[in-house]
Structure formats: structure tokens, C-alpha cells
């Protein structure tokens, strides 16, 4: 089973992603509610893949991403973004995010994106 780390400040979003993932046989290794916690969990849980919300208080998703990539250049990070945040998503891609999903998303989109990235 592939281990996923979900980083999102909204509990609802974490649950939405978790629900989708668990239905499809992923193992949610952990959840983090902000960037700093996300980085710590990443280091400690060594997930196969991370879903990372772009807008978070204190430390944004982008900063968290940079830190994660600095720690592990091959980290597989999928950004989770809302519409209208194109610029931030682009920055994320430039900084090593593998792809992104756009809210509101369908369950199968999440699964598909994650599966494909894991196959890379």
C-alpha cells in the first residue's frame, strides 16, 4: 500500500481526500494542518506521495513544498489548489511539485493523479 501524507489546513478537505484515498486502497500515513507540521511529518513518515494545499496560514503550501523538496529532491508532491491560483500553482510546479488537482475535485481525479505520479 502506498503511503500518503495529506497537508491541508481545512479539516474538511483532509477528510475529503482521505475518504477518496482510502476507498482506493491508499494508506493515509498522516495528516498535517499546516506547512510546518507537514514538513515534520514528511520527514518522519517518509510518505510515498504528498498532497499539499497551496493556501495555508503561517507557512504557505509553496514554502512547505520548497522545504520538502530541499529535504528530498525526489519527493512526490501534488498540490491542491482552488481556481484562480494559477500563479501559485505555476510557482509550485517550478519548485518541484509533480502535478496539481483543482478544487472542487472528483474522487477519481485525485486517485488518477496520484497513481500516475507514483508510476513515474
Amino acid at each position: 500500500m502506498k503511503k500518503v501524507l495529506i497537508i491541508d489546513d481545512a479539516a474538511f478537505m483532509r477528510l475529503a481526500i482521505r475518504t477518496a484515498l482510502e476507498k482506493s486502497g491508499f494508506q493515509v500515513a498522516g495528516e498535517a494542518a499546516n506547512g510546518m507540521e507537514g514538513i515534520q511529518k514528511f520527514i518522519e513518515l517518509k510518505p510515498d506521495i504528498v498532497t499539499l494545499d497551496i493556501t495555508m496560514p503561517e507557512m504557505s503550501g509553496l514554502e512547505a513544498l520548497k522545504a520538502i523538496i530541499k529535504f528530498d529532491a525526489n519527493a512526490k508532491v501534488v498540490m491542491v489548489s482552488a481556481m484562480g491560483q494559477e500563479a501559485m500553482v505555476r510557482d509550485a510546479i517550478m519548485n518541484g511539485a509533480k502535478s496539481f488537482i483543482v478544487k472542487p475535485f472528483k474522487e477519481e481525479q485525485v486517485i488518477k493523479a496520484l497513481n500516475q505520479i507514483l508510476e513515474m
Binding site: M13, A16, T55
Partner: peptide, 19 residues
């Protein structure tokens, strides 16, 4: 302002997911 922005952003996302 930042906080309100973030709150609205989160609500927007979740409510869109719930349709």
C-alpha cells in the same frame, strides 16, 4: 484581512466540494 480571506477561501473550497 488575511485571516478573513483564508476563511472565505476554505469555505469556498469545501462548499464547492459539497455542491
Amino acid at each position: 484581512i488575511n485571516e478573513i480571506f483564508r476563511i472565505m477561501h476554505t469555505i469556498k473550497g469545501s462548499s464547492a466540494m459539497m455542491m
